[in-house]
């Protein structure tokens, strides 16, 4: 087992703006924080899982969430800074979830967030089929399309397609030819 890679977003904020701030506000700040996170993600091991820890962040506004969360996810999906890796968001308080979800929906994005209760949640824009498949993988920890097809009520091919899309969106981890692992479970068994 390797140590999970954790990025403390508040520490990044303070380093990026060179001030003792605890709030993620303004687009300039968001951009500076995202650039630093991008550098840290790029330096992480290939295919690893990184936790972005927001638990020490006080306030967040739309502009900053757009820069730090949405633009980062777009980069992860398109340019893949992590070279096949994944990002889990942690410590986003209930009071911020609505704001983050709104930003994600605007961009058609989704992320996995481990909330205060310790349970992972899928937030943002996902189809009903993606949400069901994601929940099934999360409950099992790991699954392949054949495991889910019966419960899903559709054929194995359809389930494989949905899981493939979740993997492309970096919401589940693809292992081998047909296995899919929940992000929080994958974090534990690396």
């Amino acid at each position: 087992m390797t140590m999970p890679h954790i990025i403390d977003v508040c520490a990044v904020l303070r380093s990026a703006v060179n001030q003792d701030y605890g709030n993620l506000v303004t687009r300039d700040t968001g951009m500076a924080v995202r650039h630093q996170i991008e550098r840290e993600l790029a330096a992480n091991r290939e295919g690893g899982i990184t936790s972005l820890d927001f638990s020490s962040i006080g306030l967040m506004d739309y502009s900053c969430a757009d820069e730090v969360v949405a633009k980062l996810l777009v980069l992860l999906q398109n340019d893949d800074l992590t070279r096949g890796g994944y990002v889990v968001f942690r410590g986003i308080g209930e009071e911020h979830l609505e704001l983050v979800e709104s930003v994600l929906k605007h961009h058609g994005l989704a992320l996995v967030c481990v909330c205060d209760d310790g349970n992972p949640r899928l937030i943002g824009r996902v189809s009903e089929a993606e949400r069901r498949a994601w929940d099934m993988v999360r409950i099992r920890g790991t699954a392949c399309p054949a495991d889910l097809a019966d419960e899903f009520g559709f054929g194995e091919d359809f389930v494989a397609e949905v899981l493939g899309e979740l993997s492309r969106r970096r919401l589940v981890v693809r292992r081998g030819d047909s296995g899919f692992v929940a992000l929080d479970a994958a974090d534990m068994v690396q």
């Binding site: 506004d61 502009s63 757009d66 820069e67 961009h107």
Partner: peptide, 8 residues
């Protein structure tokens, strides 16, 4: 992502 401030 711009222009969301007023929306918020």
């Amino acid at each position: 992502g711009r222009g969301q401030g007023f929306k918020g």
